[in-house]
Design a protein around this nucleic acid. Structure first.
Lengths: 362, 362
DNA sequence: CCAGGCTACTGAAGCGCTTCAGTAACCGCC
DNA sequence: GGCGGTTACTGAAGCGCTTCAGTAGCCTGG
C-alpha cells in the first residue's frame, strides 16, 4: 500500500511497493541486463499502475552529471534566426545530428545582437554549448568559460580550448570579387552584414570597418578587398552599405543606396543570398536590369539563390555540412574528446544568371 | 585551504573556505537580502577566486523542482520549422516571451512528421511543454501526459487539462473561399497541407480527406468547403492537392497539377502564403497571368505575402500574438494557474493583387 | 531593565536519482 | 564436496543545491 498519497511517485515508491531496492528499480530502466526479465516486467507494470513516468530527468542529470542537451547561443533573437535561411539550414543539420545522439537543443537567443545574456548561460542546463557567429567579446562566451563548459564555436574567432568550425569566408569573398572583376566590372558596391552589434546601419566608412566585431563580416570584406585589389581596384573607394540583418527588405534598401551613387556601380557584392535578392529587387525598382545593367553576387547558395529570378551567382558553402560538423564536434566534446584543430570548410563559386559583363561604358 | 584539489568547486567549497554555512553561500546568490552586504561581497570574491561559477543549474533544479525551460514540440525537423515563416514568426514571439520570463527554449523536433519521440519527451528537462500542430495521436502527447507536465497546445485539438491557443482556421478558410466565389469564380482548386503524417502527397480524394489527422488541415478544408457550398459549388468536385510541407517548391508542383485539370480552375485556395507563392510561379510557368487568368489566395499573411509579386490576397492571422499568447500561457501554467478556456485568435481577409474576377468564360 | 522585534546566520532535511562495492544464492565441474 | 564463476539483487554514499525552522545577538521603546 502506498503511503505517499498525493505525492508523485518516485523510484522509492515503486521499490517500496514491490519490496525491492531502489537500485533495482533504477536498473530496470537503465540496465535491463542487471535483473531478471521477470522482475523487470513486474517493476514496469507496477510503475505503470502507480503512474510513475520513469526516472526524473533532472535527478538523473544530477546523479550522472550530464544534462543531455546541447545549448546553442545565437547572436540575435529567433526571428532573425528563423528568417535567415543560411542559419536555419545549418541549425537544422545541427539539430538532427544532436538529436540522433539523443540530445535536445536548448536555444539561447541573443538580445540586441549581443548574444544571450550571461545569466541565461549561467542558468542553462547543458553539457556543451555551440556558439554561432557572436561578436568577439560576447559576455556569453565569458560565461561559458566561467562554467568550464565545452565549447564549439562556429564562424567565430578562436576561443582558447574550444573546438571550431568555420568557412573559408575570406576565400569565398575573394572568389566573388574576382568573378565580377574578371567579367570586366570596375565599379563595385558592397552590401555587407553588420560590423558591430550597435544597431547601426547605412553607409560605412573605413574607420568603422576597421573596428568590425563580427568575424564573418570582417573576413568577407577582407576577401572582397583582396579580390578587388589584385586587379588594381582602389578598395577605399568601394562604397559599402552595412545592413542590420540579412533579409531581403534590408537588402533592397541598402542596394538602392548603392545604386544611386555616381558613378553607379555595375556590380554588387552581397554577403548573403537574401541581401542579393533584395538587391535585385532594388535594381528593378530603379529600372535597371540584372545582369544587363548591374550584376549581383550573393553568398551561401541557399535554395532561394537558385530559385530567384534571375538565378543568383553566389558563393556556395555547405551549410548542412557545417551544421553536422558542429553537431559532431559537440557530441565529441561531450565524450571528453579534446578539441582538435579548427575545421575549415571550403567554398566554391556558383556562376548563374545574375552576373554578366558590364554594359558598354556610358 | 581547499582540500578539494582538482575537483570543481561547489557551494561547500566556498562555505568551507570562508567558514560560513552552505545556506549562507546559497543566499548570497539567491537572496541577497538575507545576509549582510559585506559578507556577500566576500563570498562572491572568494567564489571568483576559487573559480566557482555559481550554483549548478541542475542541482538547483532538483532542489527547487523547476527546470527553467520551456519545451516546444514540433511536428517535423527544424529545417521545416525554419523554412516555414509562419512557424518561425510564432516561435520567435514565443521565445521572446519565454525568455523575458528568464527561461530558455528546449526544442524537441519531430521525426517524420510524427512529432518528437516519446523518449525525447521523457528525458527532457522542462517544466512545461508547448505542442505545435502535432497529429492528433502523437506519442509525444501521451508522454507529456504520463509525466503530468503542464501542456499548452497550439493549433491542435483539445487535450484534456491543457491550455490551448488556436486560430479561427475554419472561419479564415471560409473567408478565402467566399472571397473568390464572390469575385465570380466557380472552378476552384485547393492546395492543402498534409492530411496525415505518412509522407503521402499528391491529389487527395474524399476518403483520405475524411481521415485527416492534422486539425489545421481539417479545419481549413472544412472552411473552404463551407464557403464554397454556401454558393452552391459542389465541393466534392473541387480538386485538392496535398502538399508534404508548406514550401514554395512544393506549392509549384501542386499548383501545376491543379492548373492542368480540365476544366482549369480559375482560382486556387492555398493553405499557406508560401504555397501560394509557389502557385503563382506555377501559373507563370504555364503561361498564365495572376490574377488575370488565375486568382491565388494564400493563408497567414507572412511578410512574403505582401512582398511577392503580385502581392498576395491572403487570410491574415496574428502570428506574433499567437506566439506571445502561447508563451504567456506556458508561463502561467508554470505558476500553477489552471488552464483557462481555449483562446481563439481572429482572422481577417487581406485583399491584395493576386485575386480578381475570372476572365470571361472560354 | 526587559519584552518584543529585527537582523544575520546556521543545521539539517530533503530533491530523486545513479553507481559501486558487496553479498547471497546457485550452477556446474573435476 | 569444495571451488571458481555467474547471476540477481542490495546498501549506502553520493550528485550540488534550496529552504525552513531555528537561534544568537543586538536594538528599541516603554
Amino acid at each position: 500500500m502506498s503511503q505517499d498519497r498525493g505525492r508523485r511517485p518516485t523510484l522509492d515508491t515503486i521499490a517500496l511497493e514491490l519490496g525491492v531496492s531502489r537500485a533495482t528499480v533504477s536498473n530496470a530502466y537503465n540496465r535491463p541486463d542487471q535483473l531478471s526479465a521477470e522482475l523487470r516486467e513486474r517493476i514496469i507494470a507496477t510503475a505503470r499502475r502507480l503512474g510513475y513516468p520513469g526516472p526524473d530527468p533532472t535527478a538523473r542529470s544530477l546523479a550522472t552529471r550530464r544534462s543531455g542537451s546541447v545549448a546553442v547561443m545565437l547572436c540575435d533573437g529567433l526571428s532573425s534566426a528563423f528568417s535567415d535561411p543560411a542559419l536555419s539550414i545549418m541549425l537544422d543539420a545541427l539539430a538532427s545530428t544532436v538529436d540522433s545522439g539523443d540530445r535536445a537543443l536548448l536555444l539561447l537567443p541573443g538580445v540586441d545582437g549581443a548574444g544571450p545574456r550571461a545569466q541565461s548561460v549561467m542558468r542553462a542546463q547543458t553539457d556543451v554549448v555551440v556558439a554561432y557567429s557572436l561578436v568577439d567579446d560576447a559576455p556569453s562566451l565569458e560565461a561559458v568559460r566561467a562554467r568550464k563548459l565545452p565549447l564549439v564555436v562556429v564562424d567565430e574567432p578562436v576561443v582558447p580550448g574550444s573546438a571550431r568550425v568555420e568557412v573559408a569566408d575570406e576565400t569565398g569573398a575573394a572568389l566573388a570579387a574576382r568573378h565580377v572583376v574578371s567579367l570586366g566590372h570596375r565599379r563595385i558596391g558592397v552590401l555587407a552584414f553588420e560590423l558591430s552589434a550597435d544597431g547601426h546601419h547605412g553607409p560605412a566608412g573605413l574607420d568603422r570597418i576597421k573596428t568590425a566585431r563580427f568575424r564573418v563580416t570582417r573576413d568577407r570584406i577582407a576577401g572582397y578587398w583582396k579580390g578587388l585589389a589584385e586587379h588594381g581596384i582602389p578598395t577605399d573607394e568601394v562604397p559599402l552599405w552595412e545592413a542590420p540583418g540579412s533579409g531581403r527588405e534590408i537588402g533592397t534598401i541598402g542596394a538602392r543606396w548603392l545604386l544611386e551613387r555616381h558613378p553607379r556601380p555595375t556590380a554588387l557584392l552581397c554577403m548573403s543570398d537574401e541581401l542579393a535578392i533584395g538587391a535585385v529587387r532594388a535594381a528593378h525598382d530603379l529600372g535597371l536590369a540584372v545582369p544587363a545593367d548591374v550584376s549581383v553576387v550573393g553568398f551561401d547558395d541557399t535554395p532561394a539563390a537558385s530559385w530567384s529570378s534571375p538565378p543568383l551567382t553566389t558563393v556556395r558553402q555547405d551549410l548542412l555540412l557545417k551544421g553536422r560538423t558542429a553537431g559532431d564536434l559537440a557530441l565529441r566534446m561531450l565524450n571528453g574528446e579534446r578539441p582538435g584543430p579548427p575545421i575549415t570548410l571550403g567554398v566554391t563559386l556558383v556562376a548563374r544568371a545574375s552576373t554578366a559583363p558590364p554594359a558598354a561604358p556610358m
